[in-house]
Nucleic acid binder design. Structure first.
Lengths: 167, 167
DNA sequence: TTCAATGCAAAACCTTTGCAGGCTA
DNA sequence: TAGCCTGCAAAGGTTTTGCATTGAA
């Protein structure tokens, strides 16, 4: 995990300006223990700079991702979570379906695939993530679960489900 | 790949009604060679039933996914592609970044991970997809590429990129 | 006949864009 | 001072929802 000074040094070395919003955003990325959504990061920055706009958050998240400081994961419901890259290079994640905790996974499936499996595709990239309930959440299985998420994403069977026409 | 009759039999066995839209949608899913987006499926159905609404498409895609007939993959740009499950059970895909062709992958990374790797997470699910350029597209590398997609998703370096403040 | 399925319209949601003005280096 | 960065506002695209009506079984 880089320190704030390291990130800022790296940023300015690359020619980017250290604006107020960028400093606060970086601070937020460093402070927020769990991975954060654009919404959460916006709220963090907005609490410290009332005038900040969502577009600024997105522009900076894009920038930081582009230059490799940020890592973005997708939860099942297609919400993006961002965090500073605390791992070196390419890696994957283990993501809690309840609390959204994200842990690094050392394993990359590409190492198990040969050119034959990959049907001569070029410029290979892979997306891989494992979802489950972390130990903390397993004990609180039924109460803490985010019920707003779609059931089929979680394999949670809601009380009313499993009868055919129950949508 | 299930036949249309099989799917319809299975549907009505589960208590769902075989409506006009559903029949056309299933036909579309069977006919369209490549994986299709909600938009494409909407167009397919709309061409055969002018009055159909997008909400109906989504409701049916959700339904078919929920009961396991459909498989949904996400392209890098977060657009969803749907296709009938032609594989049995859990599987993954190889997706062309240019033409969106989707091929099945036999390998599942979960088979290489033990409980230790998975940090005692429960109800494990995995999302895995490999992206690249298929052989057909490799020859047309530069002209056929969808330039609207974000560069960092493709590792395409656009002419103006790679200089720091060039957004 | 019954209630699931639909069409319609509107909104929700996340994200992007253009532009004029502000601020960092 | 130069031009990157920002706030603002508006729109983008995909997906969801409520409600009255239609239609399959």
């Amino acid at each position: 995990m880089p320190t704030r000074a390291e990130v800022e040094k790296h940023l300015s070395a690359k020619g980017y300006k250290l604006t107020k919003n960028r400093r606060i955003l970086l601070q937020g990325l460093l402070e927020l223990a769990e991975w954060a959504t654009a919404q959460e990061l916006f709220e963090y920055v907005a609490a410290r700079n009332k005038k900040v706009n969502f577009s600024t958050i997105y522009r900076n998240l894009d920038l930081l991702t582009e230059i490799g400081f940020l890592c973005r994961v997708d939860r099942n419901n297609d919400i993006h979570y961002y965090a500073l890259n605390h791992e070196e290079g390419h890696h994957h994640h283990l993501i809690c379906k309840s609390c959204s905790k994200v842990l690094p996974l050392d394993f990359c499936p590409l190492s198990s695939l040969g050119p034959l499996d990959l049907q001569n595709f070029s410029d290979i990239e892979c997306k891989f993530a494992v979802y489950g309930y972390c130990q903390d959440c397993q004990s609180q299985h039924l109460d803490k679960r985010q019920t707003t998420e779609r059931a089929q994403d979680h394999k949670i069977i809601p009380p009313t489900a499993n009868k055919p026409p129950g949508r």
